[in-house]
Amino acid sequence: MFEARLPQAAVLKKLVEALKELVTEGNFDVSPSGISLQAMDSSHVCLVTLQLNDDGFEHFRCDRNMSMGIHFGNLSKILKCAGNEDTITLKAEDNADQLTLMFESANQDRISDFDLKLMSIESEHLGIPDQDYSAEVKMPSAEYQRIVRDLTSMGDTVLVSATKEGIKFSTSGDIGTANITLRHNTTPEKEDEQTHIDLKEPVALTFALRYLNNFAKATPLTPQVKLSLTKDLPVVVEYKVGELGQVRFFLAPKIDD
């Protein structure tokens, strides 16, 4: 038996909206410690990982580990039927072929349940090593969204370089070139509006803007995003989901021939 209850459906709605275009389907691995997901995009250029911790839920019960194959487009259709403020409960019997989603309105005068058919998805599980990054940059997620959107109008790839001057995003295309630099800035009173650059050594990497833009679909989840960069390694773009956990996007760099 698996049962997980969240006080606000909005969180799950936003999570699925952030994932569904990048990864059409994937396995929700449930265990007593929470729900996790690892899925690659169809071209195997990026990897999405999701971790939702058991203690971040209002109620969490998982008697045995299960892998639930989910089509995110279909899950999104069901979640559109939930109000943002609804309480949401996910339920499945052991070895079930369906996941039940129950929505309750705040004053409990409306209760609905939807069953989502589960799929059998074979997925290769990748081991992601823990490591120290050359540069870790925390910035407002809306700023990240704006930068990658603005640069997409100029080019297809972006050179991200972190130095003691700041983090610079550069692109070029048929119409010209663009550079946007963000400096370490702890002036704003609100921590959410600050930019923190933690630099161990300068690093510069090139990435496809299309994917970085896609990651920005997670912006509504949280006001800050963290970028982690190391030479010749995938960039990590991380959005924390309150006390519940986080979603991380790993994007392989472009490598000079």
């Binding site: 990897l47 990748l126 992601i128 995938p234 392989a252 490598i255 021939d257």
Partner: peptide
């Protein structure tokens, strides 16, 4: 000219 790397080139089977 640059080539897009695959993510599996960086992370092993786990």
């Amino acid at each position: 000219k640059s080539t897009q790397a695959k993510i599996s080139a960086f992370f092993g089977a786990g």
